[in-house]
Design a binder for these strands. Structure first.
Lengths: 137, 137
DNA sequence: CACCATAACTTGCATTTTGCAAGTTACTAG
DNA sequence: CTAGTAACTTGCAAAATGCAAGTTATGGTG
């Protein structure tokens, strides 16, 4: 067994999740988000290159899986694997401590699957007029 | 309530602990380490400037406290506050998941308080011959 | 058919954070 | 007077992050 920094389980978990973004992506997945734009839409405003990087690392680590939900062009959505789902107790412990230490914070609600995200039916697009580009409002 | 990134408790915890080192310092404290050199001696080999930075941030956040254990020159040791101790369930959850995902890792044992670390008695110094400087063994 | 919009990324820097090695301070022991 | 020790600090290089914009491959609208 060769480990990056030490044989401490905490250390090895930190080598995987020890930054300001990875666990937020996991949180979003637990909440029911699946798609790139949904992750980008979270209030913390992750940069798209960071998101791509983290999704990749999580894929490689086997915490999430990817599947095409559409062909031409192929579009992917992401789901937690069983392994990734095992992180929930950690998130729960963080929420418990976090809510106590940061009064006013509140666990985010699970996502209501939006009509546009139908899993099998033909997704009808609304002719919404807002651009891809984020405004620093 | 104004939060740095969002009102999510997880996000705010990550703003405090979301890096590769802070939780390791907490781990060391939970294990019974108190002094600068003890933290430096951990197998992950934290750099001394990073350690100083993290101890400061944890002090400011109220997760640890500092007290002089010697005068002339004044030397400090660090202890978890009640608030900091509340992190144990998070560490525990991480250890549980980590041990499962990284076979071969093992929770580190609590430190046996070394004779040189007497809390009240006059600490006698052994004339040890090893330098401060770390060798890349 | 010519545009515009959308989704999932990628690319090119600028800024920030880490990491490494060495230096500083203030003593005590010999 | 010299060496050693503990707790930091400093200077600079390297890596990670953040921002804005670009790319690819469609489908819808007029």
């Amino acid at each position: 067994m060769k480990f990056e920094r030490s044989s401490c389980p905490i250390t090895n978990v930190l080598d995987l999740l020890g930054d300001k973004w990875t666990l937020l992506v996991i949180r979003d997945l637990v909440l029911g988000k699946r798609r790139y734009q949904e992750f980008l839409a979270s209030p913390e405003e992750i940069a798209s290159n960071i998101l791509a990087d983290r999704l990749n690392k999580l894929l490689v680590a086997g915490l999430i899986s990817r599947r095409a939900y559409q062909r031409n062009p192929t579009r992917y959505e992401y789901l937690l694997t069983k392994k990734g789902n095992g992180l929930e107790p950690i998130l729960e412990a963080i929420v418990v401590w976090g809510k106590k230490q940061f009064p006013g914070t509140k666990k985010f609600p699970r996502i209501k699957q939006s009509p546009g995200l139908a899993v099998h039916a033909g997704a009808r697009r609304t002719r919404a007029g807002n651009s891809n580009r984020r405004s620093k409002a």
